[in-house]
Design a protein around this nucleic acid. Structure first.
Lengths: 355, 355
DNA sequence: TTGAAAGCGGTACCAG
DNA sequence: CTGGTACCGCTTTCAA
């Protein structure tokens, strides 16, 4: 297999009876005008005849730019990340940039080694979608080494956003999303609600939690019955565990509505309800987050918060391109708004005696 | 941002007071033994002090190997593909190989240009998960250019599998999966069934269709009420369209069970049933394919066929590594078996008069 | 054990 | 418009 070695530019040049330099010019659109019509044709013919394909490795070494960007993502199995990736790809493809995608599975050490590899491969820029709250110092330092765009996950304080230093960032307003969820529940009449929080080492969940609390503070009559615990990972199993904990309480201290930080956690909550002989939304309402595929076909269809993931990828791509082009005047911090999607997993609470 | 240029080996060498060649040897584990204990320490200290990171581009150019493989996938939004990718990544990561992932969105031209780019980047091997039936000649030729592993999708005839030429392949037995689905339905008592086929330019769907027909041929009393049409893409909308077509028939010519080639198509069928005022499984049973995330939480939970996607990725990775190592004696064709997952979207057909 | 030098496959500057 | 040449950063033979 893998037949004889790929032809080199040198071979193409010899074939066309010209010097390598001339062949290079003839094939490079940016300077074809420096070459006579005639030789250009001969070189291109030779190139086609030999099936020549420029060695990107050699080009990179010479030009100091690889035409690749690194994309560091927590988990490709998460369709939300896949969608961001597609947005990024869409945004950079017509510039001929190739994304190198690496997964971290949410291990900070893997994140660092992934970045190290990308750096070794001399990517022109890095998009980091897998930051943890503890990575702040590292990320800040990294941004001094390579053009960096922080996507999806950031750090509470804006890292020099707007100013020239620190990474650019494209985030979504998780505080707003959480507020929308709480307002919806309160509007339906719920007075005892609880959140099922995601892992607090991830900024999205920190923000959702604080949005939740802030919204509750605006509604004095509403009680927060959240337990102290959070999901270690965003999974159905963890959702089941968290919800079961809450549902095992005596009825009076049991929430009538649950705000899950993630759709899978919400699905786990639905399982727990069923296991406890409770019905959704009749006994307990449930809200998810992300609008995962098929969440509209669950039993019941899940009320959730949709993130503009594809667009987020697109905006990220734009910031990357601007960074590569050395554009300085553009905004270096973008905040996208989520969209609240009411479906059938939420309804007014059952009428009852007591507060 | 992007501070002063990354340090080179030359700089490390100067810093340590040795020649570049010596520095190279001191940092390369494979030949550290050629260097004195003392200088090795000095070089490594200098390397650490400068924050040196070997330029993989230069290494690649010199050694002729990039430590990267290309992975061509139809669509990352499909969790099935994401899972295969993880299997591949898992299988190659300890060898320090980086996968370059490119999406084709099932456009054959994009597939070719994606492959061309990967070839330009001098990947050491290519995994093709996005082949169409019409790509056979192209793929056969490609396999002569670069070590190639065909995953998930193949071509009806084994392309020189087992022999030395043609691509290696890791497929799953779609015929078997379709048979399992049909046998399940017939076992439940269904006598009028139909399939909702996926796009026939993709081998998986061709195989599922032929498995379906073969299984029906084994059950003479069972009628195939499939329409001639197929889904142009595997989506809920297409499933809805196909199913609606079938359900618009008069009751006697209407199937009591549907075998969809894909879970999303099956979900569309569930929608169509609901829209027609029919219930699943009471009026019509539905089977999907792939065991998509949350398909177990649908209304009703979807009977489906699970593919060993992660393992498929792992086997693919193994074949890639063997190809890179020049192993010749290993099997070059792997066929994995699917697992039938009965859930609540299938049941015995409603008792009725007539055949 | 270390240094010298060639060269991987291109690009780009300088002459002519 | 074309040829000559240096060089990107590293690895690897060959000598010393």
């Amino acid at each position: 297999m893998s037949g004889s070695r790929a032809p080199t530019l040198r071979e193409v040049a010899r074939h066309a009876g010209v010097h390598v330099a001339t062949a290079s010019r003839a094939l490079n659109t940016a300077q074809q005008h420096l070459v006579s019509e005639d030789t250009r044709a001969r070189v291109q013919a030779a190139s086609a005849a030999l099936g020549y394909r420029a060695n990107a490795v050699a080009q990179s070494l010479r030009t100091g730019t690889t035409g690749t960007i690194g994309v560091v993502v927590a988990d490709l199995a998460n369709p939300f990340n896949a969608s961001i990736l597609r947005g990024i790809e869409h945004g950079i493809q017509d510039r001929g940039i190739l994304p190198l995608v690496v997964e971290t599975h949410d291990h900070p050490e893997r994140m660092r080694s992934a970045v190290a590899r990308l750096l070794g491969n001399r990517v022109d820029a890095i998009v980091l979608c897998a930051a943890h709250t503890g990575d702040e110092a590292y990320v800040r330092e990294l941004a001094r080494t390579v053009p960096l765009v922080l996507a999806v996950r950031g750090f509470g304080l804006r890292l020099g956003a707007g100013s020239g230093d620190g990474p650019a960032e494209v985030l979504q307003d998780d505080v707003l999303g959480a507020r929308a969820a709480v307002d919806h529940l309160v509007g339906l009449g719920h007075r005892r609600i609880a959140q099922l929080p995601g892992n607090p080492t991830i900024s999205s969940f920190v923000e959702r939690a604080s949005g939740y609390r802030a919204a509750l503070a605006d509604h004095p009559g509403v009680h927060d019955l959240s337990s102290g615990s959070h999901a270690s990972e965003s999974s159905v199993a963890e959702g089941r565990r968290l919800a079961a904990e809450l549902l095992s309480r005596e009825a009076a201290r049991r929430p009538t509505a649950l705000f899950a930080h993630n759709d899978l956690i919400a699905v786990g909550a639905l399982d727990a309800l069923r296991a406890a002989g409770l019905r959704c939304p009749d006994d307990v309402s449930v809200i998810g987050y992300n609008d995962a595929p098929l969440s509209d076909h669950l039993d019941p269809p899940l009320t959730t918060v949709r993130l503009p993931s594809f667009e987020l990828g697109g905006r990220t791509a734009r910031l990357v391109l601007e960074a590569l082009d050395g554009v300085r005047e553009s905004p270096r911090s973008v905040m996208l708004s989520p969209e609240f999607i009411p479906r059938r997993s939420t309804s007014a609470p059952r009428l009852e005696s007591g507060s």
